[in-house]
Structure formats: C-alpha cells, structure tokens
C-alpha cells in the first residue's frame, strides 16, 4: 500500500518553519523524510536510476534554495513533489527519443517467461492481488516498461496515484491542473496501459 501522505504532513510545517530560519537539521530531516519517495516516483517516471538520483538531488537543492520563498499556501508535501515532477517531466521531454529506443531494446530482451506471465495476468478476470503481483519479477519488469510507454502526463498522474498514493486533489495541486483533468487523464492512462500490456504479450 502506498504511504499515507496525510500522516507525514503533521510536523512538516514545523520543520519547514525551522528550515526557513536556517535550521540545517530541520532541513536534513525533511530531506531524509522525502528522499526515497521522491526518488521512487522520479525513477518510475524516468526509468533510469542514475538520472532519478540526480533529479532527486536537484529537487532538494531547489527546495533548499527556495525554502525561504515557500509561503505555505500548499502543503510542503505537494510543493516538493511539484518541483520533482516538473524537473522530471522536463527531463523526459529532453530525452524522449533516447528513452523510446531504450524501451524498445528492453522489450525485445524480455524473456518468454515474462510474456507468459503477462498473458495470464491479462486473461485473468479476477482481481489481482498486488502483493502476489509484486513477487512476479518478470511481470513487474514488463509493467515498468509499459509504464514508460505512456505519454508523460498520463504516466505522471498514474505514478502519483498508484505508486505515491496521492488523492486526486493532491495530484491536481502537484500537476497544477483541474480535478476533472486528473480524473480523465488517470482513466485514459489505465486504459492505455492495459492496451500496451496487451500489445506486449502478443
């Protein structure tokens, strides 16, 4: 299950206030608190761990540089993710061609066992248990590849919802879009992901 954002937000405001007064320890605590979540989301969006680490690092550098300007109109949680997602989307747009070539290569290399597992997953009309799915490594690899084939806006909304566990309002705030846009974009993303997976198992 995704982590609950609300439970983490409790003392964010205190840490942010202390960080704004130059408290380095408070800032370090904020970084340690969010670094893996940011890294995970960025990695699922960009597909490369080195780039994800660099983007995460860049995100927190920007956070530190801009913390004094943070007015608290939104939560720190959505603010930091907004910075990370924007950086990642810019990165994805810059490296779109490279990513596509890379994905094609990965897809060709996927073994038959993965394809078989995918076929079973798609043909199974029963609801799949995420815990069981997580143990099927080949299937996960294909899912990651399929995720990277989504258009960036759809990928972003799906990652924020299904991986980070944000609600629609938080996603709308992070992506700076309307709630209805999140709704339709997420629906299309899931539908499109299914189509990609179906195409991959053939």
């Amino acid at each position: 299950m995704p982590l609950s954002a609300a439970s983490i937000n409790i003392d964010d405001s205190v840490l942010v206030q202390r960080s704004q007064t130059g408290d380095l320890e408070a800032m370090e605590r904020l970084i340690l608190k969010y670094q893996s979540r940011i890294f995970n989301v960025v990695l699922k969006m960009c597909g490369n761990s080195d780039d994800a680490a660099e983007l995460t690092q860049e995100t927190f550098v920007k956070v530190i540089e801009s913390i004094e300007k943070f007015k608290g109109k939104s939560s720190f949680y959505t603010w930091v993710f907004r910075i990370a997602v924007n950086l990642t989307l810019n990165y994805c747009q810059r490296t779109a061609r490279m990513a596509t070539r890379s994905l094609d290569a990965e897809e060709n290399e996927s073994d038959s066992q993965g394809r078989q597992g995918l076929k079973e997953f798609l043909s199974d009309d029963s609801a799949a248990d995420p815990a069981v799915l997580a143990q099927r490594r080949e299937l996960c690899d294909l899912a990651k590849a399929a995720l990277l084939k989504l258009e960036e806006p759809q990928r972003a909304v799906m990652v924020l919802r299904d991986i980070e566990g944000m609600n629609y309002a938080e996603i709308a705030e992070v992506l700076n879009v309307e709630l209805g846009t999140v709704r339709s974009r997420l629906s299309r993303a899931r539908s499109h992901l299914r189509e990609i997976l179906e195409a991959m198992q053939k």
């Binding site: 670094q35 799949a128 299937l139 996960c140």
Partner: peptide
C-alpha cells in the same frame, strides 16, 4: 482497470541512494 492499478502499485519501491544527503550537500 483495478488490475492495472494494482500492477503499477505492485512495482517494487526503490530506495534513494544512501549517500543522497551527502550528494545534496556536495551539490550545494
């Protein structure tokens, strides 16, 4: 649709590099 959501949600959670904080400090 639920399975699609579950599949993405089942993807392993990756941890940030252990030296992320140091890297951020060096970058600063």
């Amino acid at each position: 649709l639920q399975n699609c959501s579950n599949l993405v949600n089942a993807l392993p959670v990756e941890q940030a590099p252990v030296d992320m904080l140091e890297q951020i400090k060096r970058s600063l």
